[in-house]
Amino acid sequence: MNALLSVKNLQKVYPTKVGMIKAVDDVSFDVAAGETVALVGESGCGKSSIALSLLQLISSDGGTVHFDGTDFTSLSDQQRQQFRKKLSIVFQNPFSSLNPKMRVRDIVGEPLKTVFGLKGSKLEERVAQHLRDVGLGREHLKRYPHEFSGGQRQRIAIARALALEPRMLILDEPTAALDVSVQAQVLNLLKELQAKHGLSFLFISHNLATVNYIADRVMVMYLGRIVESGPVHSIFSSPAHPYTQALLASIPSLDPLKKNQLVALSGEVPSPLSLPAGCAFANRCPYASDLCRTLRPDLLSKSEAWAVACHHPIQGEED
């Protein structure tokens, strides 16, 4: 498989007054052309740090990020600008990611102006075309962000990200701030755009149901490390890592008759300042043994596409 994005041993450490926080610890993964890979995990597990360091919007502290064969981390800022047009990002909150003092025409047009040097009617034509792509009409060109609903704003943010015709989009919780009825529209739009432009997506989310809907593969993170990765349908139907299993069990079902199946994980996420020696999940894991508390499990292949970092992986029906 030819990877469009290839991340190897990525590290991100935040120094604080009371010690170092390893937000991203030795993370490696690939994203192929046209593929959607989801990154899931709870607040503070390092999802957004990965997104930002892929684009080098924050500098990484180790590892490499190859995009289309070039090591992104070793480039100068100027060279990197050229690459950023191939790899774009949509942020979580369309209420804060769009400049309230700019008109839609300028928000979507700015990258076209600075990178392609477009001007005048040509620029306007292109902006209108990108807006049409996300289902917005020409009449919206002169409007300001406050005149739009949340879903429409997220469409504008997507149009801006697609303005430079990137090959891959990083979507950092793109529907978390939206109502469900609108979320469905944005997810459908993303799928449609992917089919049309052959885009790859890195879809970051804490909502497993949306991941199930949009992604081909999923990576589950816990405290800075990937604990399980593989095809969405296999992992969601029979998770191998106890943490993945717990995440799935804590999603309330729409069926009120299943309400007693809701299971809550006990305990809290350990402080990233003082990580335990062994497996970071051991203190909350129902299957933890002495081995788990002393030796950190590596991410090992379970089958061709499926890897899990656990000493006692759950044996699914498919084994």
């Binding site: 469900v180 009825s181 979320q183 469905a184 459908n188 949306t210 199930n212 809907y213 799935l248 729409l254």
Partner: peptide, 15 residues
């Protein structure tokens, strides 16, 4: 409109 686990990947309906 609520995406559910175990649902097939047809287009989600929206309002």
């Amino acid at each position: 409109t609520v995406p559910a686990l175990g649902q097939t990947k047809d287009d989600l309906s929206y309002i």
